[in-house]
Each structure stands twice: as structure tokens, then as C-alpha cells.
Design a protein around this nucleic acid. Structure first.
Lengths: 145, 145
DNA sequence: AGATCAGTTGACCATAATTCTCAATCTCAG
DNA sequence: CTGAGATTGAGAATTATGGTCAACTGATCT
């Protein structure tokens, strides 16, 4: 199985794009994250090591990283783009806590299958999909009492 | 069954809010729409009849209309808020065509039920949820060939 | 009906996320 | 090593949305 970095390198080469230090570094930082960082969160992390890298470059690089199939944009309804790992990660859905912002990733093969069926019924060719449940997580519910 | 306007009137009264002409007119225009208008689309419609009504009022009124349970915010991933009818409309999901922008509303009680189960399994209290499948609709697929 | 007062509006400004511009810089094939 | 072409950094531009505040309006009371 090829590493994420190898995939990225090949993607760039195939497209005649350059393998810049910035892209390499931004990919590195992103791969080390485990949650759903925003552009700004990534930018802050990157700044510590490479204060010269600009915000616009982070935006541009994350787009390339998404196009290469290594990241996926997600949106939890708060008006900010977030990113999560896409390479070697199964598709999953999210339970988003409206109190604390915690995000629980959940797998549901049965829902996935029903979605396929639903699309087929309407002659619709699915490319990607998303499902989020917004509510209150266990911890926040306990605190309320 | 109470009409949407009646519900709105009662909501305003219960909260000590005023029943202004602007709110009435914006609700009227919204109720006549059938798709998923953006704020700007609604503003353009409203302007024709009431050129005095400002954009900020449309934003503010749509929030009130949502709070009153008559509309719901939706997001199709293009960075703009849209609104759809909520009163006397079942919850449904969306098939969003990435080529032509068409949105097909679909019902799936089985998916709804699995979502409930999923939330319960994680001790998560659901408040609302959304599911969108992005892809190519029948018409756009036909054109491709 | 007229006075009153809190809620609302319109016009404009503020903000935040994201993208664009462009001169300077870097990457890489030859 | 060099040149052509891609990329970057800095800051301006854009877009959607929300905030401010003086002027205005709707509902209530008399």
C-alpha cells in the first residue's frame, strides 16, 4: 500500500505540478492531525515551524490535497471549512454536538447501502454524500442534569 | 390545521414581537416559493413589490420565520444559505446535482430510523440532521452521452 | 382616536472566510 | 546550471452575513 506522501508525489507529477516545500510541509502537518481542523487551525500549526508560509498557500495546498484524494472537506454547519483524512479511511458520518463541538465519527454500512438504493431509484449517479446528526453528546447531556 | 400565517402571528404575539408589514410580506413571498431560495433570491423577489425593504430585514425575517418553525435552513455546499418549507412538510433528504444544481427531495423512513438507532447507540440526543447525496441527475447524465 | 413606548427597519458599516493579483521566487527537465 | 513555467507571500478584493443606530411603526392604554 502506497503511503499518502507517495500518492501525493505521483499526483503532482502526473499533473505537471511542482512538489514544493510548502505543499510537502502542509501535507505533513495535516497528516499528523486527528480531528477536523479548519484552515486556520492548520495555519497556526504550520506557522510554528514555518512562519514564512502564508495563509493563502494553506488554502491552495489543502485544495490540492483534497483533489489528490488525501483529504476531504467537511462542514459542521458553523460556516467554516474543515478537513478530514480521506486516504485509507472508510467513509463515515458525523454526530456533531451543538454544545461542546465534539464530533463523533460513525460507520453505518446499512445507511450507506440505503443511500445507494435511493439514488438508483431516482436515476441519480452519486459522487459523494454526507450525513450529519446534530444534537447533544453524552457528556453534555450528563452535565445538564 | 392552522395556516402558516396564523402560526407566524401566534409565534410573534407569544414572544411580544411585532407583526410588521415587512415580516408579513417576506413570509408571503417565501411561502410562494417552491424550491430552495437563497436570501438574495428572496430579496430580488421582494424588491419587485416592495423596493423599500432592505437586505438586512430579509436576513432578520428569515431567521424569525425559521425560529417560528415555518422554514428551515439548508446548505448545498456552495457557501450560501438556502431556505425550504418546514411547516407541514416531512423531513426529507436531498439529491443535489453538481452539474445543473437541481435538487431532488427524497423521503426515506428506513434511513431516518437507522439514524435514530445510530444516535442512541452513542448516547447522543439528536436535534436535527441532514443528508445530502451529491452527484449527477438523470437529465445531466443523458446529456453527457 | 391620540399618546406612548418598546420593537423594528433601512442604510450603512463591520466582520470573517475565502479567493484573487502579481511581482518575486522556486522547481525540475534538459 | 539554466530557462520556462509553476508557485508563493503579502495584501487587496470579494462575498455572505451580521451589527449599529437614528428614525419609524405597531399594539396597547386611555
Amino acid at each position: 500500500m502506497k503511503s499518502a506522501k507517495t500518492v501525493f508525489g505521483q499526483y503532482l507529477k502526473n499533473r505537471g505540478m511542482l512538489h514544493s516545500k510548502q505543499r510537502e510541509e502542509i501535507l505533513d502537518i495535516f497528516l499528523k492531525t486527528e480531528k477536523h481542523p479548519t484552515i486556520d487551525a492548520l495555519y497556526q500549526l504550520i506557522r510554528k515551524k514555518h512562519p514564512k508560509i502564508g495563509l493563502a498557500t494553506v488554502y491552495r495546498s489543502m485544495r490540492v490535497i483534497c483533489d489528490a484524494g488525501l483529504a476531504r472537506e467537511v462542514d459542521f454547519g458553523d460556516g467554516v471549512k474543515r478537513y478530514e483524512h480521506e486516504y485509507q479511511h472508510q467513509h463515515h458520518d458525523h454526530l456533531v454536538c451543538l454544545k461542546c463541538g465534539r464530533v463523533i465519527e460513525v460507520l453505518s454500512p446499512r445507511i450507506e447501502h440505503l443511500q445507494e438504493t435511493l439514488a438508483k431509484k431516482h436515476n441519480f449517479t452519486p459522487i459523494r454524500h454526507r450525513m450529519e446528526i446534530f444534537g447533544t453528546c453524552r457528556e453534555c447531556k450528563r452535565k445538564e442534569k
